[in-house]
């Protein structure tokens, strides 16, 4: 899917996904690099906002693993990196990676354009899976992010009259609930008797609503919310 030569390993003939890791902790970067399996290859690293924007522009990775909190720039952290790489958003996808569980951080980086959010404590395999999913154009929701979405949009399904961007449909709510309960996409599909592809469609739709909804409560909610 990429026409640039892939330097990394190949798994079953599928070219490895090219990834840039942006995190201000060198220890964490090297640890993550060691954890990621052969399906991805790390083509660049950055520790600050400026470095990140430069490295991303130069290497044009498919996926950027992006820490929410970064030094440098105007203090915007991960959001600023995404904004600075706006021209590449069609080809480069961002997966937010954070130790912060604060809704404010998570929601702001998602609304800036990240395709998903995972916590740093998940395993290398899980991160690799998430990277592949994001590279494939899907959204990655952790249980906690699903919880935030449910909290922000409310747990009541949308009426027809509602602005569709401001509420979740009944099906989307079901999917979000299951993800919040710790279900994988596969398990969600099994539980709801739908295909994994449909689950991914629902999740992407929710992501779009989360990013585009002008619902004023959303930002306010995230800013006010300082929960664990």
């Amino acid at each position: 899917m990429n026409n640039i030569d892939t330097a990394g390993a190949h798994a079953g003939g599928v070219p490895a996904i090219r990834v840039v890791i942006v995190d201000d902790h060198a220890i964490f970067r090297s640890g993550l690099k060691a954890d990621l399996d052969a399906r991805v290859t790390v083509v660049g690293e950055a520790g600050t906002v400026e470095q990140a924007i430069a490295v991303i522009a130069q290497t044009r990775p498919e996926v950027v693993l992006l820490d929410v909190h970064l030094p440098g720039g105007l203090g915007g952290g991960g959001r600023e990196v995404i904004a600075g790489s706006a021209a590449l958003l069609s080809s480069t996808r961002f997966l937010a990676l954070s130790v912060s569980d604060a809704a404010e951080d998570v929601v702001s980086v998602i609304r800036a354009g990240a395709r998903g959010y995972v916590t740093k404590s998940i395993s290398g395999t899980e991160i690799t899976d998430a990277v592949l999913r994001v590279a494939g154009g899907d959204a990655v929701f952790s249980p906690r992010l699903a919880g935030f979405v449910l909290d922000a949009f409310g747990t009541a399904p949308a009426d027809i009259a509602d602005d569709e961007l401001d509420r979740l449909s009944a099906r989307e709510l079901e999917v979000m609930r299951l993800i919040a309960r710790g279900y994988s996409y596969k398990e969600v599909a099994k539980e709801l008797f739908i295909s994994i592809k449909t689950v991914e469609t629902h999740v992407s739709a929710v992501l779009r609503k989360l990013q585009l909804s002008s619902r004023h409560e959303l930002t306010k909610w995230a800013a006010e919310r300082r929960l664990l």
Binding site: L150, A180, R181, G182
Partner: peptide, 18 residues
């Protein structure tokens, strides 16, 4: 890892432990 999901709505409280 154990996943716990707590949802409080008007109708009541639900807790899922998986």
């Amino acid at each position: 890892t154990v996943s716990v999901y707590l949802e409080v709505a008007d109708g009541g409280v639900e807790i899922f432990v998986k």
